[in-house]
Design a protein around this nucleic acid. Structure first.
Length: 1095
RNA sequence: GCCGCGGUGGCGGAAUUGGUAUACGCUCGACACUUAAAAUGUCGUGUCCGCAAGGACUUGUGGGUUCGAGUCCCACCCGCGGCACCA
């Protein structure tokens, strides 16, 4: 009888299983395919830790289990090999990342193979291999060619010491860099982005279709952050002096001109609308001269030109020696080359412009281009905009080339206004000021109008120099500055309201501007309090108010209120205590009032949501009750006892007078409109829509999600496949030049620019292929790009023509079980889903979500309950555990520790316990050999108990393995083995045990299967079956309760009738004793389960 | 603050769909084997009362529903994770 020696058997079987594709899928039955995937690791220099092994073992058990059930299982492994640690190591030591990475991968692979994990090594991939990143680059081009990758200037965190860009996560709350401790500055850099925001809606909606942990789905939703609301336009209170110039063959009576004039004059502006001379044969001198002669210009002038009128406008500005408020063009151009026909005026104008002069002569400039303009091409518009250094603004036109009688987009563009995004359009009447983000473009536009410009400019500069962290983190004390000399008009009530600049409004969210409603928004409230701005409640919460002055004998504290399930809603400035509590607690509430205050309190007026407002007032016995019904109406105050008091006060009058609204109104989002003109009395939910329509606003959904910045000023990543022509215009590298390889002639020490910039080879390569003066992009891609598509590659890893064939993806995808760390609940999963949606949209695949089911493993802590770390010295090295106990023990222990997703501490004693269990399994089989010998000729028998245990165990392990409940599965193994030690059994029970154990402890199972004299490999056997009938015992123990308390256990035949069971239960001695001679009122018999006798 | 998850012995954790709470393992104690230790085996191990039979209490706290609640409902407390001046 041999002792269990894991070292020997594990070596033996590992050698047998060592060929690359030992575990390659080999069937083609689509109905029985299973793709089981681990999040592939970053191969770090320090090797695998025990935490890696938990998910790997979990998916391995799952894969082996389904193989035994006849499934065609794809279970691959690879390396997320690009990344910072290897590069940082290179900076320190000069060792190229290629070398360290290759070494680390070998270590990882060796450790993984040692654990008996059944990966198909013929599909191994590494993201750093040119064969792989060729396709990463191909994906970049796919996005680029479909308008989903673009370059723009972005504000980034720059560490002046390390000379590199930092992620937001790497900047501490005090604005210093986590690593270097240097003060991080904001720097504008040209960066590449992926347009993930285009998919925000699907990324949220499709979460409904996946089997993922709740919190992962919630985190994704949270991150994407959908808000439904409206955009509303606020006019600026200022009288402008408009000069409107019509176009070629036009007149002020044509098109939208009369309408526009009427609209502007209605808003109080003055309008000059000259008839330009020789409209059918215009000349520059004639038209420009006429305008300069007949129109007056001042700093409040807004010059507008339609079509040729815009050319006239430009020429006029060239000649003006004062600065006007703004310039707007619609269908304008600076280039006489028309696609359709030549224009007669083409050589009557000089097509050279002094753009610099023009730009300086106008406060703001807007270039409008209608959709599909047949007269002016997009290119002409773009040239105009480029000269003026502004973006082209796309406008929906009423008719081609802005020729309708009404053109609202022009009206909007011509009058400076502020567009805000709000989720609470119902509170529009309560908007008492406007806040712009410091970066808001309007600030610059209004430069000439703002009286305190120096102060404003200083605030803007200070805000722009702050990092995001500084602006949003730590003390959120609100700061801001008022724009003097400019006010806005609330479009709902036409009130004039001030405009502030404050950094609590973020430029990149919504429109970068908000309407502030201090009565219904905490932040606005705080700001309003600080700057003494008016607060106007417009929604009264749908609750009843009961207002009471009570004789204050004892104080009611917050604790008293909460003790009876009430909520303290707030304290008014005058010291009133506002309280609400559920109606069912009314009695308790009254009791408290009586105890604390005075007798005879009432509760018949309390509804489900009643807010009480108390005021202690010595001697006063006055009660004011407002409403006994909650019907959404605003009630007048009434007096319960003191009829001589004034009863005409409105809720609002009372509340307003006491000015407690901050907290209370903000926390109640539902209610009835008030102070909102015609909308008074409407439910606020309805008012959202009604008020949006009333002011011509637009319903809008906004997302928190921002586009994905993929540029990294780093070496160890996939180079971005872009080159720049001598004018600096980016061009995609044609596919035939992929992989666009990472150069090796670089130094790793940071210089503040991307390491690729130093490469001579890369520069020469670029010029050789594209021509003199062409330059390569020197940034590499975020490593999250590499991992956003690797699961596709595994389905077809050696394909040289495509990233994966449609056939292979159709067969294998989506991933049936994806296992990995909870730290990836947001970024990696979001990016992978984004790539999948792009491929779906472009017709490469026909599914929408890459990972059908997802599970996370929890963290394994050190024995001291702290996270394992070198500095704490609590790291468990898996190699040591394997050396001491074998891989099977480590596998079984990690599965037995607790639920997969839980955080749990390592416990060396428990490892020994798992080892003991395997030794006991081993011992059973050794004894079996001896038993067979001693029983030669005799008869093998198994007890009933053992047969029942066998079938129950098969059932339980099958169910638990299906559901990845491995901890309870291992517990069942232990119970079964305990039974086998006590009861006579045959080889059948041992075979079942070894088969069940095969996915969990593959080495010992293989060895014992052989020792039991069975043919073939244990892992290729069919999964054992159980017989439901054999899971039942002949007799059962039924608990008997008296009044719900356990008083006896009776042993009865399993097929006993309920009546018989009841009789036996009643007959039991201890039961009789507890009945104390009384007749049972009721006896509850749960078939085969329980008897409860009620007396 | 908002969203999500959880709270059960000395520890990790079980408990079907409302039906014997504490399975399984660890720890600890006693015993057996041994010159001894390790290993192994047997028994015990929620708290309290009791020699025992038996009884009382117990799943974060307080209420509720039910013949019966760890499980369902209400309120609260605590812990973990995510987001956080996102209008």
């Amino acid at each position: 009888m041999e002792d269990y020696n894991p070292k020997n058997i594990e070596e033996k079987w590992r050698a047998k299983w060592s060929d690359d594709d030992h575990y390659a899928p080999n069937g083609d039955d689509k109905n029985k395919k299973l793709y089981v995937l681990d999040m592939f690791p970053y191969p770090s220099g320090s090797g695998l830790h025990v935490g890696h092994l938990e998910p790997y073992t979990a998916t391995d058990i799952y894969s082996r289990y389904f193989r035994m059930r006849g499934y065609n299982v794809l279970h691959p492994m690879g390396w997320d090999a690009f990344g910072l640690p290897a590069e940082n190591y290179a900076i320190k030591t000069g060792t190229p990342p290629q070398e360290t990475t290759a070494k680390a991968i070998d270590t990882f692979r060796g450790q993984i193979q040692r654990m008996g994990l059944s990966y198909d090594w013929s599909r191994e991939i590494g993201t750093h291999n040119p064969d792989y990143y060729k396709w990463t680059q191909w994906f970049f081009l796919l996005l680029y060619n479909n308008g989903l990758a673009y370059k723009k200037k972005a504000k980034v965190n720059w560490d002046p010491v390390d000379q590199t860009v930092l992620a937001n996560e790497q900047v501490l709350p005090d604005g210093t860099a986590e690593r270097s401790g240097a003060k991080v500055v904001q720097k504008d850099l040209e960066q590449w982005f992926f347009k993930i925001t285009d998919f925000a809606e699907e990324l949220i909606d499709d979460l409904d279709s996946v089997d993922w942990p709740d919190y992962t789905v919630a985190n994704q939703r949270n991150w994407i952050g959908r808000s439904e609301g409206a955009e509303i336009e606020f006019g600026i209170k200022k009288k402008f002096n408009f000069v409107l110039l019509h176009g070629f063959t036009g007149s002020p009576k044509d098109n939208f001109f009369p309408w526009l004039k009427e609209q502007l004059e209605a808003q109080g502006h003055t309008v000059q609308m000259p008839t330009l001379p020789d409209t059918n044969e215009p000349t520059e001198e004639g038209q420009v001269g006429h305008v300069l002669k007949t129109c007056t210009f001042d700093e409040n002038t807004i010059l507008f030109g339609h079509s040729l009128g815009s050319v006239v406008a430009l020429k006029v500005l060239e000649k003006l020696d004062i600065r006007i408020a703004g310039l707007v063009t619609a269908g304008g151009f600076v280039d006489p080359n028309f696609a359709d026909e030549d224009r007669i005026f083409a050589d009557k104008f000089k097509w050279i412009f002094n753009f610099e002069k023009i730009r300086n002569a106008a406060g703001f400039i807007t270039v409008l281009q209608g959709d599909e303009d047949s007269a002016v091409s997009d290119e002409q518009a773009a040239r105009l905009a480029q000269g003026l250094n502004v973006p082209v603004v796309r406008a929906h036109v009423g008719e081609d080339h802005f020729c309708a009688k009404e053109e609202p987009s022009i009206l909007r563009a011509v009058v400076p206004s502020i567009r805000v995004f709000t989720t609470r359009p119902d509170t529009l009447f309560g908007a008492t000021y406007i806040v712009l983000a410091p970066e808001h473009e309007l600030v610059e536009e209004l430069k000439d109008t703002i009286k305190n410009w120096n102060e404003v400019a200083a605030y803007v500069e200070a805000a722009c120099n702050k990092t995001d962290v500084e602006r949003t983190g730590e003390d959120k004390d609100k700061t801001g500055v008022k724009l003097e000399g400019v006010t806005a008009i609330n479009p709902a009530n036409k009130e004039e309201i001030p405009i502030y600049l404050a950094d609590y409004v973020l430029a990149h969210y919504g429109t970068g501007a908000i309407m502030a409603v201090p009565a219904h928004d905490e932040r606005d409230y705080e700001f309003a309090k600080k700057y003494d701005l008016p607060i106007m409640p417009v929604v009264v919460p749908t609750v009843d108010f009961a207002v009471s002055y009570i004789m204050g004998q004892k104080d009611i504290s917050k604790k008293d209120i909460e003790g009876i399930g009430g909520t303290v809603e707030g304290v008014t400035e005058e010291g009133y205590l506002m309280v609400s509590f559920p109606k069912k607690n009314a009695d308790a509430f009254e009791k408290m009032i009586v105890e604390k205050m005075e007798p005879g309190f009432w509760n018949e007026y309390i509804s489900d949501e009643t807010v009480f407002i108390f005021k202690h007032r010595d001697g006063a016995i006055e009660r004011l009750i407002l409403s006994g019904e909650n019907d959404g109406k605003i009630r007048k105050l009434g007096h319960q006892f003191n009829d001589d008091e004034d009863t005409d006060e409105s809720v609002w009058a009372w509340l307003g007078e006491n000015a407690f609204y901050g907290q209370f109104f903000v926390s109640h989002k539902e209610g009835v409109m008030l102070n909102s003109g015609q909308f008074d009395g409407m439910a606020n939910g309805e008012a959202k829509k009604a008020i949006t329509e009333f002011v011509g606003g637009e319903t809008k959904t906004t997302y928190r999600l921002r586009d994905w910045l993929v540029s990294r000023q780093r070496y160890w990543g996939a180079p971005i496949p872009i080159v720049y022509d001598p004018e600096g215009i980016p061009h995609p590298i044609p596919e035939e030049h992929l992989p666009w390889t990472l150069p090796t002639d670089v130094e790793f020490t940071p210089h503040g620019t991307s390491p690729l910039g130093q490469s001579k080879e890369l520069a020469e390569r670029t010029e050789n292929i594209f021509g003199k003066g062409w330059k390569p992009e020197v940034d590499t891609m975020d490593t999250f790009v590499d991992s956003s598509w690797y699961f596709f590659r595994f389905t077809d890893p050696n394909n040289e023509k495509e990233f994966a064939s449609k056939k292979a993806m159709k067969y294998w995808m989506p991933v049936d079980l994806y296992m990995g760390g909870a730290e990836h609940t947001v970024l990696h999963l979001l990016y992978a889903r984004f790539f999948t949606k792009v491929l779906n949209k472009l017709g490469y695949i026909d599914f929408n979500e890459p990972f059908a089911a997802l599970r996370h493993q929890g963290t394994i802590l050190g024995e001291d309950n702290f996270k394992m770390s070198k500095s704490k010295g609590n790291v468990i090295n898996p190699d040591d555990v394997v050396d001491a106990y074998g891989a099977d023990t480590l596998r079984v222990y990690e599965m037995f520790m607790g639920p997969l997703e839980g955080t749990k501490p390592w416990n060396t004693n428990s490892v020994a316990g798992s080892h003991r269990f395997l030794k006991r399994v081993w011992g059973l089989v050794q004894k079996q050999e001896a038993r067979i010998k001693s029983q030669e000729g005799g008869k093998d028998t198994a007890s009933n108990a053992v047969v029942v245990a066998q079938h129950r165990t098969v059932k339980k392990i099958t169910e638990d393995t299906d559901k990845l409940r491995y901890n309870t599965a291992v517990a069942s193994f232990m119970e079964y083995v305990n039974v086998l030690y006590e009861e006579p059994h045959t080889k059948e029970q041992l075979d079942a045990l070894v088969l069940l154990l095969a996915p969990y402890a593959p080495f010992i199972a293989a060895e014992l299967w052989e020792q039991l004299g069975n043919e073939g490999a244990v892992h290729e056997q069919p999964w054992p079956q159980y017989d439901e009938a054999k899971t039942q015992t002949d007799t059962i123990t039924v608990p008997v309760q008296v009044n719900g308390k356990l008083r006896a256990q009776i042993e009865v035949s399993a097929d006993i009738a309920d009546e018989e069971l009841q009789q036996q239960a009643l007959a039991h001695e201890n039961v009789q004793r507890h009945l104390e001679g009384k007749e049972p009122k009721k006896v509850i018999v749960i078939h085969q389960k329980l008897v409860n006798i009620v007396v």
